[in-house]
Amino acid sequence: MIPAEQINQILTFPALVDAIEQAFTQDISVPPRLHFDMENPKAARETTLLMMPAWQAGDLAGVKLVTVAPENSKKQLPSIQGIYLLFDVDTGSLKTTLDAPSLTAKRTAAASALASRFLSRPDSSTLLMVGTGTLAPQLIAAHASVRPITKVLVWGRSLAKAQQICQQVAHLAIEVEAIDDLETHIAQADIISCATLSQQPLIFGDWLVPGQHLDMVGAYRPDMREMDDSCLTKARVFVDNFEGALRETGDIAIPLATGVLTKEAIKADLFALSRKEYVIEREQGDITVFKSVGHALEDLAAAKMVYSKL
């Protein structure tokens, strides 16, 4: 079992960003992930079980088993828990197991940074981090590895938790400030990264200004949203993978169902961007949205990177 501490030491940015970009250009088999909502009478919301397999012919295969319990913060437990199993395709033998939450946090942040490298303005210098969970410090570090970030604003429902995130990223030697008012600060940001368990929009199109890039990481269920419809109608929209994004996240599925958004309006996913099948020509005033739902090849790329360093 490779623990979180070792995974965090090995998976650095932007090396992991590069590895995931390469993975999106390779022939990796990824069946649709299995998503089960398990009723939990002890909480107001279900606990979600995710099973995500991926493999490369003749090389390695991986399966991630993860649970998401949204109310775990009340129990002083992480909301995401699980394990990653890495197998040898040739022999079928188990090579190693890895701590899934740390692997997930690293690869999710790297995927967001990869999208930012394609979509955000190259001179983006101010990042607004919305959310104070496990992903927040990883997203800050990942974005700062691909763009010249000099200032980070951190917002959460708890100002104390936002201040804790500031302390966790102090080693980056970037100006970091916890804020308690999202609306009045949002116009200052070049990149807005949002990773929460919110069921209602937190980011509104009326607040946005030209040239911004939105990195939307939360809203992992069809009934959850982090941005309102006008964010989508004002922006050029991209996703990490079409199959998952169209059905798994309320940020995309709900606007599709109501007709606010069409499939054709989603410009490209990370496969097309990484393979140079879609090349964005960004005008200075364009607003871009990247919606991340996660993809098993990202996990496999990260797990292979860890295993290669042992």
Rank of each mutant, 00 (worst) to 15 (best):
P122H: 11
G250T: 00
E183T: 14
I174S: 02
Q76V: 12
G131R: 01
Q9Y: 11
V289W: 03
G133E: 07
M129W: 06
T258H: 13
A144T: 03
K267N: 10
D269K: 01
P222N: 03
A257H: 08
T96S: 10
F13H: 09
A115I: 11
R107G: 03
M305V: 05
V146Y: 02
K106A: 13
K151D: 07
C194S: 15
A178L: 02
E226K: 05
A115M: 07
A187T: 13
I149Y: 01
I280V: 13
F118S: 10
I186D: 00
M129Q: 13
M52W: 00
T47L: 03
R33D: 03
E39G: 13
A57Q: 14
S73N: 15
S292V: 03
L127P: 05
S73Q: 15
L60M: 14
S73L: 15
E183R: 15
P14D: 09
I20L: 02
R45M: 06
V89Y: 13
A302I: 09
L208S: 02
T104C: 09
P137Q: 01
I80P: 04
E21N: 09
F13S: 09
L153Q: 00
A296P: 04
S29L: 13
M1A: 09
M216R: 05
M38H: 08
L65S: 14
R107D: 04
E5K: 11
G92K: 01
Q212W: 02
V68C: 08
D181S: 07
F204Q: 12
R275W: 10
K161V: 04
L11W: 04
T25Q: 14
A301Q: 08
A142F: 05
K106F: 04
G82Q: 09
E5R: 09
F24N: 05
A303Q: 11
P41C: 03
I280T: 07
E298N: 02
D99M: 08
G244P: 11
A162K: 00
K161Q: 13
V176H: 04
L246P: 09
V289L: 01
E21D: 05
P3Q: 15
Q284G: 01
V30G: 07
P41M: 02
D228I: 04
V260I: 15
S292N: 11
G294L: 11
G285L: 01
C166W: 06
P3M: 14
K276D: 12
Q164C: 01
A69E: 12
S116E: 11
